[in-house]
Design a protein around this nucleic acid. Structure first.
Lengths: 208, 208
DNA sequence: CTTCTTTTGGACTTGCCGGTCCATTTTGCC
DNA sequence: GGCAAAATGGACCGGCAAGTCCAAAAGAAG
């Protein structure tokens, strides 16, 4: 399946996006190939033409697609965490993203239902986690260099904690419908980093 | 299905536990009623006798069962968060629980796969979240009363943040196989609370 | 012992859904 | 225009798993 015409690529893309939408709405478990077929106005043979591995391969493609979207949605904020204003803007962007999205979660669904089983999907999730965490960690280092965060803090670990908070917040949003947890986790995480700076200057009695 | 003999109740229980085990090992998606039947040495008619609602009702029962286990596993620590030592012991208990459990997650699986769809399962998850959060919040208040946590901190919000961190940490543990995120989230969360106390006494130059 | 209820066994039905296959059309290319 | 490769349509298959049903065994209760 090496060669792909323009038309072919477009169809493939349409299938992936259609599948992603369906999955977002109904979850992996309740999404059948026929659903995808109907929504994307394609035939069975097309599905298997572009995804010879069947449902599993399609799901993997969807996972990749969603993973990219997650990070893209947080730009440009995530890539520029060089001031506290940027950090809060990022925070707001994340919260807003999930508010808009309501109860449907693009990635967590794929993550928990596909990522669990197949090694291929594992890789996708792993890479996303790594990239996401790296961006946050870079932001932490920026602020450390600027003297705004205690240099004693491990950037990687701080990023891991923040990411965990986000993931959990989203998960709880899915189950409870409230964004409280996500907000609280982000506020505490960022707040902790900011407070570490205050601790730096306080011992000498300096205000800010 | 009002009357239940001793034998009947035992069978019902056996089914729920067997189903829970199977689901933990293979996930909801790959668990069939026949799997449960085989493991629990029961017949089709028994399954539908005790769970007339079929698979969905059984899944709900499993969700309840697992929800109870989650909290039970954290006792007695979770119920007695009255000293920093207790907080760290609790932290270790949580981490340990998931280390033992490996990559299988009793509740997150049920949570994301069942809780999403049916309103009944939603209620189960909601109640668990509420109880869990309440216990943590109580712990925070204890420490505030003891002057070990800044009284300006909102216990409910702190509990929400911590819980989000735990959930996310577990989720990432499922996907990546590492416990780093869970540990980092807990350490940061509890560390943040503890630091708030230091901030209290620091302005006057007192050491501890 | 009888009778009614609960529990159990397991064959059978039914529908769905992933996957296969081949025929046909469209497209790219010279 | 003509040829090969790619794209598409859709009938068909096979298996699996949820759910139904009836009939029989095991217990309670008097």
């Amino acid at each position: 399946m090496g060669a792909l015409t323009t038309k072919g690529a477009a169809t493939r893309q349409r299938i992936v996006e259609g599948a992603a939408e369906t999955i977002r709405e109904r979850g992996v478990m309740d999404t059948t190939l026929d659903d995808v077929r109907a929504r994307t106005r394609t035939s069975k043979s097309q599905l298997f033409h572009y995804f010879p591995g069947g449902k599993e391969e399609l799901l993997l493609a969807v996972a990749r697609f969603e993973a990219d979207r997650v990070l893209a949605d947080q730009q440009p904020y995530l890539g520029e965490l060089t001031s506290w204003a940027a950090w809060w803007a990022w925070r707001d962007r994340v919260v807003e993203r999930y508010r808009e999205q309501g109860r449907q979660c693009p990635l967590n669904v794929v993550m928990s239902q596909v990522g669990h089983s197949t090694p291929g999907a594992q890789a996708v999730v792993n890479e996303l986690t790594l990239r996401w965490e790296a961006e946050i960690a870079t932001g932490v280092r920026h602020m450390q260099a600027a003297g705004e965060i205690d240099p004693g803090i491990d950037p990687g670990r701080a990023a891991a904690a923040l990411l965990a908070g986000i993931q959990g917040g989203v998960l709880l949003h899915l189950s409870t419908g409230r964004l409280t947890h996500l907000e609280a986790a982000l506020d505490m995480g960022i707040g902790h980093l900011r407070d570490s700076a205050a601790r730096l200057s306080r011992p000498y009695g300096a205000g800010a």
